[in-house]
Computed example of a mutant assay.
Amino acid sequence: MGIRIIDIIATILVNFVHCVFTEHILSCNVTQLGSCPGNYHVCNETSLQCYCLEDYIQYGNGCIAKSEAYNTDHDATAAVVSIFTIALVVVGLVLVIRKYNLIDYVRHKINQRRNNDVMYEDVMIGQDDPPLVP
């Protein structure tokens, strides 16, 4: 009897269930040096699994200091929030500028300051007023 397809499917399903419901803890050999990958890993003799030292936490396949893990998580969050905030401010400015035609307003004001012509509509030329009588 050879291996049937049902046996292969059952093996894959059992491995999948095992992978989903167990923690991904690295196994190690106590008698072998460097059996745990990365720095700050120690092999436990009773469970034969790698764990991190006291002031370190598991991050990926290695151990990092707790303070570094705090900074690593918040650096990415800060970057995303900063980019989102800058994009929101830029979109808001564009909408306000378009709604109130601020570009045309500024151009008009600049052109008014460049032209130093006196508006003669407001200036009286000649003696059109009646004389003042006491």
Rank of each mutant, 00 (worst) to 15 (best):
I9E: 13
T11F: 15
S82D: 01
K109P: 02
P37K: 11
R114G: 07
D7G: 11
L48T: 02
I8M: 09
F16N: 14
Y120W: 12
R113H: 12
I125D: 09
R113E: 08
I8V: 12
Q58C: 06
N71S: 08
K99W: 02
Y40C: 04
L132T: 11
I83Q: 11
G38W: 00
D75K: 07
E121W: 06
M119A: 13
R113P: 05
D73N: 15
T22H: 04
V118A: 04
H24I: 12
P37L: 09
D104F: 11
E121C: 11
C28M: 02
L102T: 03
C28A: 07
D128N: 12
N39T: 12
L48S: 04
G126N: 01
L33P: 10
T72M: 09
G2S: 13
Q58I: 11
L13Q: 07
I5G: 07
S35D: 00
I97N: 01
G38S: 02
L53D: 06
S82C: 06
E54G: 07
C28W: 00
Y59Q: 09
V20F: 03
L48C: 01
I86C: 06
G2P: 12
I103Y: 05
C19R: 15
I8Q: 11
I25E: 15
V123M: 02
V81R: 14
L48M: 06
Y105D: 10
A69L: 02
E68K: 10
C36H: 02
F84S: 15
F21P: 03
N115V: 01
L102I: 04
D7N: 15
N39K: 14
N44L: 12
I9M: 15
Y59N: 07
N111E: 14
M1E: 08
Y51M: 08
C36M: 00
Y100E: 04
T11K: 15
N115C: 03
A79C: 10
E121R: 10
Y105V: 03
D129H: 08
V14A: 14
N39M: 13
C36G: 00
D104K: 15
H18A: 13
T22L: 01
N39D: 15
N15P: 09
I103L: 08
L102V: 03
H41R: 08
H108Q: 14
V81S: 10
V30L: 13
D122S: 08
R107N: 11
F16C: 15
I57A: 01
V90D: 00
H24W: 09
P134N: 15
H74C: 08
N115G: 03
C50A: 01
I110E: 07
I8N: 09
A78P: 06
H18C: 12
N111Q: 14
D55L: 03
H41F: 03
V89H: 04
D75Y: 07
I3Q: 08
D75A: 05
D129K: 04
P37R: 12
L33I: 10
F21I: 14
T22A: 03
T22M: 06
E23F: 08
P131V: 15
C63I: 00
V20S: 07
A69M: 02
E121D: 13
G62E: 11
V17G: 08
A69S: 07
T11P: 05
G2Y: 06
K109V: 13
L33Q: 09
P37G: 08
N116K: 14
V30Q: 13
N116M: 13
V91K: 10
I97W: 00
T11G: 15
V123I: 04
Y40A: 05
N115L: 03
Q127G: 12
S27T: 11
A65K: 01
H41L: 02
I6D: 10
C43I: 00
D128F: 10
